[in-house]
Design a protein around this nucleic acid. Structure first.
Length: 855
DNA sequence: GTAGGGTTAG
């Protein structure tokens, strides 16, 4: 085997490589390890080598015995000796093989490519092929393809090799091109190449090419090849062309279990689980082959996708009878099926009782189940359990499953620690889109838009859901203008908007209450053909409702053929919004007549609001009775709305007794609504007591609680109390004051005529580091102060504030209306009229952002 | 060759 490697000669090489860590391995197997090392000069090596052995043969021997690193080291050494630099020429194919086999192959390969070019060997088949292989292994498809193009003479073997190479490296575009070129050049590709070409068509979803390859198969008599036909079926399945997959199946001369399984799982994956089951039954009847766990896996998946628990349980029974439950992946699939069908307790039981071998995927399926069913605490608990007490390490699936649980619980710290985990050692965010998307969504939900944006722009392969998540973040945090810009940016990319994008876009338009933008979005919905989707239609309806366009919403409502509860609720809430209570009632009666429309808590809330508003004395009582009759009295949201209605109509005692009765079903909103109710009814002291009680009951106040409390104090003139709670909000609860808080407290001082103190507050609100007020809010705070000046007829201070406002945003015409009000308050009518004239010429109030305060 | 778990929404 190694005629040139004689034991007496080998010390020469061993000694010259002693500085390398592989020294011991170098001649392992040829002779005993060396203990003495003497440094030899290159000239000595040179003499020794040329005298005794052929370098190429030695290198080849190394490669044949899989001593790849050694072969490369030897080459490097030889190459540094100029007199020997050409003596390894015939070992180039072997050396390239070594590059392919060991790590850092790309850099080594680049080096060798240089040598190859220098020596003019690039068109030697074995060298070209090895270089291609090398580049493919380093994922450098462009370099590899260039080598293919530069190859002057190509035979069938060469083509087949390159097709296989690109195919198995999953560079499908190139695979297909090279395969086509092979056929066009008049060669008949081997069956392995045909297989690769079929797979490539499926992955690229190129139906035209797929049919062309199919045709090739038929014309070359390959349809007897079961594997090829199965692959053709699988290709059609991947393209969603089940009818073609089925017809291929029908024309097959020979079928095996894989053929049946491909068809069954194909139907299962496209949602036709009934069809999948039919095929399964047909297969049993044929007696063609006995099903295996892949068959059942397909069926279980189908039931899970279809959320068909009954059928799923029957398949489960089948698995038990067939004794396949503990088999390959089946246990996890069944667990997942139960979780998807909402039977999460059973899924947990399967998991805990260990009826099958658990894998990381089983953990992930369970965590996903909890997360989707809204059991966020338990999702987090199992995640922690996996992290601390199992032998598995969370992967990107685990994280993507637990992230929504964390964000729905508002655990920003949990989100941040997962982020740290990803950055530290986890999957690369830029590569894993789904995980990145989940993180963007989570930051959006936790109102950390800066983090969400930072992440979003770092995701290289952002897809539609990623863009949607960012859009959802803008919507959720009231950044409507950013949302519109985001959508416009999206249109400039290759990423296609889907129904969710359109829904979010319409919501953003609703947020802006801009009919103009809404109409444009409507146009977009029409041109992109999203009108047949009920979710989009409901969002469209909601947009018109939010823009208070009764005419458009009624027209659209009439056009929606199949309505669901959301459609009705949107319309009902719309009528409530425009105070058209008789229409609300009429629509509700109409809804009850419609088959299949059962009111839910959202419906009832609109009803309560309408009844309470149209008949102040009895309306709320009637609604209350109705709530009890329909059994909604255990629904927190409904009862909160009832408290609100009673309080708004001045029945604070009834509101209070409902609140007390609610007991355990009270949530943060119940407390907020009750505190606000007390404020409205002049019971600010009671509101303050409720805050303390809320804390005792373990319910933490939020910024809404303080909005209610501050306005209660403002209305009752309890300035010192108001200041105390403002301080509490800032320092104890660490809540950043919003525009509403600032205007409320300035208003409070204004009413009491304590303008100096109000002024101090305005100044303190302007420190961005301290309070984080944005420029638009800042202007609005000055506006509120001007209002306060008007109330106390302090023209001098008011004008000063006006100048400040003008200086801050010269484009903003809103300040003139405030100024005009200020003059009017002291009956300086001429000045008031003049200022208003400027305003009338100046444009719309809506855009100023001040109008809400001046009202 | 067929093959279990993930993000976005009314």
């Amino acid at each position: 085997m190694l005629p040139l490697l004689n034991k007496q000669r080998t010390p020469l090489f061993a000694l010259s490589y002693t500085s390398l860590p592989c020294c011991h391995r170098l001649f392992n197997g040829f002779h005993p390890p060396f203990t003495t090392c003497v440094d030899l000069s290159p000239s000595t090596i040179s003499k020794e080598i040329t005298r005794e052995i052929s370098i190429s043969s030695l290198i080849n021997s190394f490669v044949k015995t899989q001593k790849f690193l050694q072969s490369l080291i030897l080459f490097k050494q030889i190459n540094s000796i100029s007199s020997l630099s050409n003596s390894a020429d015939s070992a180039f194919p072997s050396l390239l093989q070594s590059c392919v086999q060991i790590s850092h192959h790309f850099y080594l390969g680049k080096c060798f490519h240089g040598y190859v070019l220098k020596r003019g060997f690039v068109s030697f088949i074995d060298i070209n092929v090895s270089l291609i292989q090398l580049y493919l292994k380093s994922r450098k498809n462009v370099d590899a393809y260039q080598l293919f193009e530069e190859m002057p003479s190509r035979d069938r073997t060469y083509f087949d090799f390159v097709v296989r190479g690109f195919g198995s490296a999953r560079f499908f575009e190139e695979t297909l091109i090279i395969f086509e070129e092979e056929v066009v050049s008049g060669f008949v590709p081997c069956s392995e190449s045909v297989r690769q070409a079929i797979v490539a068509c499926g992955e690229l979803k190129r139906l035209d090419k797929g049919k062309w390859v199919h045709n090739f198969v038929v014309h070359n008599g390959l349809e007897k090849n079961v594997i090829i036909c199965n692959l053709l079926m699988s290709m059609y399945v991947k393209m969603g062309k089940m009818e073609l997959a089925h017809s291929t199946f029908d024309t097959m001369e020979v079928r095996d279990l894989v053929s049946w399984n491909t068809l069954i799982t194909g139907y299962a994956q496209c949602g036709s689980w009934v069809k999948g089951l039919d095929i399964y039954l047909a297969m049993k009847e044929c007696g063609d082959d006995v099903h295996d766990n892949v068959t059942l896996l397909g069926l279980v998946f189908a039931c899970g996708q279809a959320r068909n628990l009954t059928q799923g349980m029957s398949v489960h029974g089948h698995c038990i009878r067939a004794g396949l439950l503990s088999g390959f992946r089946l246990g996890t699939a069944i667990l997942d099926m139960y979780a998807k069908c909402g039977n999460i307790e059973f899924a947990e039981m399967l998991f805990e009782e260990e009826v099958f071998e658990k894998s990381l995927v089983s953990w992930n399926a369970l965590i996903s189940g909890f997360s989707k069913a809204g059991f966020y605490q338990r999702a987090v608990m199992f995640f922690k359990k996996l992290f601390m007490h199992s032998n598995f390490k969370p992967d990107s699936f685990t994280l993507a499953n637990v992230i929504p649980a964390y964000s729905c619980l508002g655990y920003i710290d949990g989100i941040k620690s997962i982020h740290a985990l990803i950055v530290k050692k986890g999957p690369d965010m830029g590569v894993d889109v789904v995980l990145g998307t989940a993180m963007v969504d989570a930051y959006g939900k936790c109102s950390n838009l800066a983090a969400a944006e930072g992440l979003f722009y770092s995701i290289k392969e952002a897809d539609t859901p990623t863009w949607n998540s960012m859009l959802a973040g803008y919507h959720l945090n009231d950044y409507a203008d950013h949302g519109i810009l985001h959508f416009q940016k999206m249109l400039k990319t290759q990423i296609q908007p889907d129904t969710i994008t359109m829904t979010l876009l319409l919501q953003v338009c609703g947020l802006l209450e801009s009919l103009k933008l809404g109409n444009m979005a409507h146009g977009c919905v029409l041109t992109r053909g999203f009108t047949s989707n009920l979710m989009v239609e409901n969002a469209l309806l909601d947009m018109y409702v939010k823009c208070k366009s009764v005419e458009n919403s009624e027209r659209l409502f009439a056009l929606i053929n199949v309505k669901n509860i959301v459609t009705w609720n949107t319309m009902l809430s719309g009528y409530v919004k425009i105070a058209s209570y008789t229409s609300t009632m009429k629509m509700f009666s109409q809804m009850l007549l419609e088959r299949g429309s059962v009111p839910d808590s959202v419906t009832i809330i609109s009803l309560i609001q309408a009844s309470a508003a149209c008949s102040t004395s009895h309306g709320t009582d009637m609604a209350h009775a109705f709530v009890a009759k329909l059994g909604f009295d255990s629904e927190t949201v409904v009862m909160n709305s009832l408290i609100d209605a009673y309080a708004k109509n001045g029945f604070i005692d009834t509101a209070s007794s409902i609140f007390v009765h609610m007991g355990r079903i009270r949530d943060q909103w119940s407390w907020n609504v009750m505190i606000a109710g007390c404020g409205m009814n002049g019971e600010a002291e009671k509101a303050c007591e409720l805050l303390l009680l809320m804390d005792e009951y373990g319910c933490e106040p939020d910024f809404i609680t303080f909005t209610a409390l501050l306005s209660a104090c403002a209305h009752s003139g309890m300035i010192d109390e108001g200041c105390k709670y403002f301080d509490l909000m800032l320092n104890k609860y660490k809540i950043q004051p919003s525009l509403e808080h600032w205007t409320c407290i300035i208003n409070m001082f204004g009413r009491a005529g304590r303008l100096e103190e109000a002024y101090k507050l305005v100044i303190s609100s302007q420190h961005p580091e301290l309070c984080g007020v944005n420029p638009a809010d800042s202007a609005a705070i000055w506006g509120a102060f001007m209002d306060a000046c008007g109330m106390y007829k302090n023209i001098e201070l008011g004008e000063m504030a006006g100048r400040k406002l003008l200086q801050m945003s010269p484009q903003n015409s809103g300040y003139q209306i405030l100024l005009s009000n200020l003059y009017a308050s002291t009956m300086r009518w001429d000045e008031a009229m003049n200022t208003r004239q400027v305003f009338n010429d100046g444009g719309s109030v809506k855009e100023t952002g001040i109008s809400s305060v001046s009202r």
